[in-house]
């Protein structure tokens, strides 16, 4: 079972690298959008420092969402989904493998880029470890919740917009606790409860999201 999951992850990574990659697009979007804020809000260091965590996190959410419509769509269009459903592995685990690949292609690059962009936004020093920690805990959740939206939107016209409508409201708790944790650290409080809550959301999404996404995928074939 683990072997098949690794096989699936390797295939998705290989496909993404060959196709010249959504990952690069996601990061480019992330960088460009964050750099718009100093231009729009003005280069006042205190103002930027105040909104740094929020801007980085909101943009990370949007960047993740941009990449979601490709998650199942390509397989759906060329008939691969049929064969995945028939593969000797529970569809839930196949979905989980695709989510893992998606996270490696979008979540990991976001985690690496976020501190650089936070520096650009003049974020105070104590915020960085918590920013990275919250990203490590929460980006897998973004991929997991996103997979449900991506699976539900299969076969719909303008699926990308539908995914945003489905998924963004579900991202709100992640956003609140992630930004809250960073802000707490900056103002000298402990970020621990925020990080624990992010961990709890991840622990809940890990079994629930693949299950829901697999059900939506099966439904899309009907």
């Amino acid at each position: 079972m683990i072997r098949i999951m690794r096989h699936l992850v390797a295939r998705d990574l290989r496909l993404a690298l060959r196709q010249g990659s959504d990952a690069a697009m996601v990061i480019a979007f992330f960088v460009i959008t964050v750099t718009l804020f100093p231009l729009g809000v003005g280069p006042e260091p205190n103002v930027l420092a105040r909104i740094a965590a929020g801007v980085v996190w909101v943009t990370a959410l949007l960047a993740t969402m941009l990449s979601l419509d490709r998650l199942f769509q390509a397989d759906y269009d060329d008939g691969s989904t049929d064969l995945l459903v028939l593969a000797p592995i529970p569809l839930e685990l196949a979905v989980l493998a695709k989510v893992v690949a998606h996270w490696m292609l979008t979540g990991l690059p976001l985690i690496v880029t976020a501190p650089v962009l936070a520096a650009l936004m003049n974020m105070p020093g104590p915020g960085y470890p918590v920013l990275i920690g919250s990203m490590l805990l929460a980006t897998p959740t973004l991929s997991l919740i996103g997979s449900v939206g991506a699976a539900l939107a299969l076969g719909a016209r303008r699926g990308g917009i539908l995914i945003s409508l489905l998924v963004l409201p579900l991202y709100i708790p992640v956003l609140i606790f992630a930004v809250g944790g960073v802000d707490a650290a900056i103002s000298g409080l402990t970020p621990r409860p925020h990080l624990l809550l992010l961990g709890a959301i991840l622990a809940a999404a890990l079994p629930l999201a693949p299950w829901a996404a697999a059900a939506a995928l099966r439904h899309s074939l009907r």
Partner: peptide, 27 residues
């Protein structure tokens, strides 16, 4: 069972061998 539908489930960016190796590897 083996199912061959009207869609080919072929990824254009992978080689012929890689395409087959993926589906064969699952089984």
């Amino acid at each position: 069972l083996h199912y061959v539908g009207y869609q080919d489930a072929i990824k254009p960016v992978m080689t012929v061998r890689e395409n087959l190796a993926f589906w064969a590897g699952l089984r």
